[in-house]
Design a binder for these strands. Structure first.
Length: 220
DNA sequence: GGCCAGGACACCA
DNA sequence: TGGTGTCATGGC
C-alpha cells in the first residue's frame, strides 16, 4: 500500500477536511504558533478572544501590549512563551517586509522556509504549516501524529528525522498543493481518532496495512 | 489524578 | 546530534 492509496482510504473514511480552519493568512500563522504542543480546542478560544479584542491583524499585534496578549491567549497554555513568539514574528515581519505578508511569501519555498526558520519560536512544523496553509505553496507538514502513524504502519523507523519524513512524502506524492493540505489534515484526524499513544485500531480505516496492528494480532 | 494535546528552545555532554 | 528539562492550560 503506497501513500496515495492510504490517502484515498482516509478521504473515503473521514471526508474532505478543508484545512486550515482560518479566515485569513495571518490567522493561519497565529494559529500555527498557538497550537504548538496544545490542543486545537484551546487555540480556538484564544483566536476568538484575539478577534474580540481586535488583535488579529499585523498592525494591531505589533502595537499590542505583551502582558495583555498573554491574558488573551491564556487558554492555549505556555502563554508567556507564545506571546513572545507572536511578538517576535510580527517584529520580524515589520523589520524585514514592511509588515506585508505578500512580500514575505513572494520567494521560493526553500528561501521562505529558511527565512521562517531563522525566526525564534518557529521550528520546522510551524514553518511548513505557514508555507502550506498561509503562503499556499506545497511544503509537506510533518507532525507527531504523522511520525507515529508512519512508524506504526512500518513505513518509517520511529527515529526518522523530521526532514527525512518530509522528503519521504514529497518524493512519493505529486507536488500538489491541495493534496498536501488535505493529506496532512487527514493524518491529524487519523491520529486524533485512532492512532493515539494508546491505539484504538478496531475501527481504523487502514489497520489492515498496519504492521504494528498485525504484530499485535500474532501475539494473541 | 495522571496523561496528552496539530512544538520549540536552552543547556549539557 | 542527541538526550533531557522547561514552558502551562484544559479535556478526558
Amino acid at each position: 500500500m503506497n501513500l496515495i492509496e492510504i490517502y484515498q482510504r482516509l478521504v473515503e473514511h473521514f471526508g474532505r477536511q478543508g484545512w486550515w480552519p482560518a479566515e485569513t493568512e495571518f490567522e493561519v500563522i497565529v494559529g500555527a504558533i498557538l497550537t504548538q504542543a496544545s490542543s486545537w480546542k484551546n487555540v480556538e478560544v484564544a483566536i476568538k478572544n484575539l478577534k474580540a479584542e481586535n488583535l488579529l491583524s499585523p498592525e494591531a499585534l505589533l502595537k499590542a501590549n505583551e502582558e495583555k496578549l498573554q491574558r488573551v491567549i491564556r487558554s492555549v497554555g505556555y502563554y508567556n512563551a507564545k506571546a513572545r513568539k507572536l511578538k517576535t514574528f510580527i517584529e520580524f515581519l515589520y523589520e524585514n517586509y514592511d509588515g506585508d505578508l505578500e512580500k514575505l511569501f513572494d520567494q521560493n519555498i526553500e528561501k521562505l522556509r529558511s527565512e521562517l526558520l531563522s525566526i525564534w519560536g518557529i521550528g520546522q512544523e510551524t514553518a511548513d504549516s505557514i508555507i502550506l496553509y498561509a503562503a499556499n505553496k506545497p511544503s509537506f507538514v510533518i507532525d507527531a501524529y504523522t511520525a507515529r502513524i508512519m512508524s506504526r504502519l512500518g513505513l518509517a523507523r520511529e527515529d526518522t528525522s523530521y526532514y527525512d519524513l518530509k522528503k519521504l512524502f514529497e518524493l512519493q506524492l505529486p507536488e500538489d498543493l491541495e493534496l498536501y493540505k488535505e493529506f496532512h489534515a487527514l493524518l491529524v484526524e487519523l491520529g486524533k481518532n485512532y492512532c493515539k499513544t494508546k491505539p484504538l485500531c478496531d475501527k481504523c480505516p487502514i489497520r489492515d496495512t498496519c504492521e504494528e496492528w498485525k504484530d499485535s494480532l500474532k501475539k494473541k
